[in-house]
Amino acid sequence: MYTLRAGLRSAGRATRPLATPRPQFQRVPSFHPRRSIYQRPRYRRFDDKRGGQKQWDNYQGQWSNFGPVYRAQYLWRSYQKPIIIVGTGGAVFYVYNLEEVPITHRRRFNILSPESEKGISEGTYQTTLEQFKGRILPANHPVTKQVARVVERLIPTTGGLAGDGWRVHVIEDPSMVNAFVIPGGKVFVFTGILPVCENEAGLATVLGHEIAHNVAHHVSERLSRSSLTLIASMLFTLIFQVDTRVSNSVFDLLLSLPNSRTQETEADHIGLLMMAEACYDPREALAFWERMKKTEKVAPPQLLSTHPSSYNRIDHIKKWLPDAQNIYVDTGCGGLSHFANDFRQTMRSQRPKNVQVQVKPAWRGKTDDDDFF
Rank of each mutant, 00 (worst) to 15 (best):
Met234Thr: 11
Arg245Asp: 14
Gln131Thr: 13
Gly119Leu: 13
Asn199Ser: 04
Pro142Met: 04
Ala278Ser: 11
Ile155Met: 05
Leu161Ile: 06
Pro102Lys: 08
Tyr74Met: 14
Phe25Met: 04
His141Glu: 05
Thr144Lys: 02
Met275Lys: 01
Val86Arg: 02
His338Arg: 09
Ser349Asn: 13
Tyr328Thr: 04
Val28Arg: 15
Asp368Lys: 03
Arg34Trp: 06
Lys293Gln: 15
Gly185Leu: 01
Arg44Cys: 07
Gly185Met: 08
Cys197Trp: 03
Ala324Gly: 04
Ser220Cys: 02
Leu194Cys: 09
Arg5Pro: 04
Gln350Met: 10
Lys133Ile: 01
Leu304Ile: 07
Leu161His: 09
Trp289Gly: 11
Leu253Gln: 13
Val150Phe: 05
His209Gln: 12
His316Pro: 00
Met275Thr: 00
Val357Arg: 07
Thr331Ala: 15
Val95Asn: 02
Gly334His: 11
Lys186Ile: 01
Leu272Arg: 05
Ala139His: 13
His218Leu: 08
Phe109Asn: 08
Val250Gln: 04
Ala299Asp: 15
Tyr79Glu: 14
Leu207Met: 02
Pro142Trp: 09
Phe240Trp: 15
Val86His: 05
Asn97Glu: 05
Thr346Lys: 00
Gln241Cys: 01
Ala287Cys: 00
Arg16Leu: 14
Gly165Glu: 08
Arg351Gln: 15
His217Ser: 12
Pro361Thr: 09
Phe180Ile: 09
Glu296Arg: 14
Ser249Gln: 10
Thr128Met: 15
Asn354Val: 00
Tyr2His: 14
Lys318Arg: 14
Ser233Pro: 00
Ser309His: 11
Tyr38Asn: 13
Leu304Glu: 00
Gly335Leu: 02
Thr88Leu: 13
Leu8Cys: 01
Ala14Cys: 10
Tyr79Ile: 08
Gln60Phe: 15
Asp47Gly: 05
His213Gln: 06
Arg13Gly: 14
Tyr125Pro: 00
Lys81Asp: 10
Ile103Trp: 07
Ser64Asp: 10
Lys319Ser: 09
Gly123Phe: 08
Met1Pro: 08
Ser310Asp: 14
Ile37Thr: 14
Gln126Phe: 00
Thr127Glu: 15
His217Val: 00
Arg153Val: 06
Gly123Leu: 03
Gly67Ala: 13
Tyr38Val: 10
Arg71Ser: 06
Ser233Asn: 07
Leu154Pro: 05
Ser30Gly: 03
Pro41Val: 05
Ala212Leu: 05
Ser260Ile: 04
Gly185Arg: 08
Ile136His: 06
Glu284Cys: 01
Phe109Ala: 04
Gly67Asn: 10
Pro82Cys: 02
Glu172Gly: 04
Val196Lys: 12
Arg225Asn: 12
Val150Leu: 05
Pro282Asp: 01
Val86Tyr: 10
